[in-house]
Design a protein around this nucleic acid. Structure first.
Lengths: 115, 115
DNA sequence: AGGTATGACGACAAATTTTTCGGTATATGA
DNA sequence: TCATATACCGAAAAATTTGTCGTCATACCT
């Protein structure tokens, strides 16, 4: 079983939750998986800015943390699927709140930093 | 005015929100400031695991992003205070949800990773 | 046989974050 | 005078995250 290099932060509830999600792609991956299971190549198509390698690494940590599940089908050519677990799904309301916040305040930050 | 090295991520609402908060201490700083304005030394006492230098750097970005405000009192010895803005305060419900999630699931992760 | 696609992963490089160390400056108290 | 405290900041090291590149294996299609 894959082991995190840096363990989850148990020192306080906020840091615990943050440490599961604060990376460039983990929150996006959870968001993508909210609907149906997805294959690695599909996730890469959905998040083309991320390389398959990075998605692979971050999915491993999500699996290790119990937020995502991986199923390998012993077929050829190989096929595997990632799906969100109940634990991961329980984070979605938080991600939803972040999405709403981002939509609400996007214009502000576009004015400040934008193109 | 201080400028972020890495700009806020405008590519999607979720990434925008995440990019404001995804660092080791920013969410904690916002959480600490929810009550009253605090001085740098107080913030360091509240978050002793973080060095004053890091708090300083991350507070600068929070100020630059408009989530926190800084007041400098022209006294000697020098005094300054950080306070949360309305924009920053609008993120607190999300942090609250993370705190609740962390409390709910702490035992799970202590079993998995903890001492 | 050669090209394509799948998924996994090692080795390494680049980028970014976080930390450490030292220094500036001023006032107070021992 | 010396130590302490306050706040700030630069340089550089260390740690961590993210990205690039090449490889393996297998089956399909041309």
């Amino acid at each position: 079983m894959y082991k995190r290099k840096i363990p989850v932060d148990l020192s306080c509830p906020l840091r615990l939750t943050m440490s599961l999600v604060n990376s460039k792609w983990k929150s996006c991956l959870l968001d993508e998986l909210r609907g149906a299971p997805m294959r690695p190549s599909e996730l890469h198509k959905a998040l083309p800015e991320a390389t398959p390698r990075v998605l692979d690494l971050q999915l491993k940590e999500l699996v290790d943390d119990g937020l995502v599940e991986k199923t390998i089908y012993p077929e050829l050519p190989p096929r595997s699927e990632y799906s969100i677990t109940d634990l991961g799904r329980s984070l979605l309301p938080i991600l939803d709140a972040m999405i709403v916040w981002g939509e609400t305040n996007r214009a502000l930050f576009e004015r400040k930093y934008g193109e």
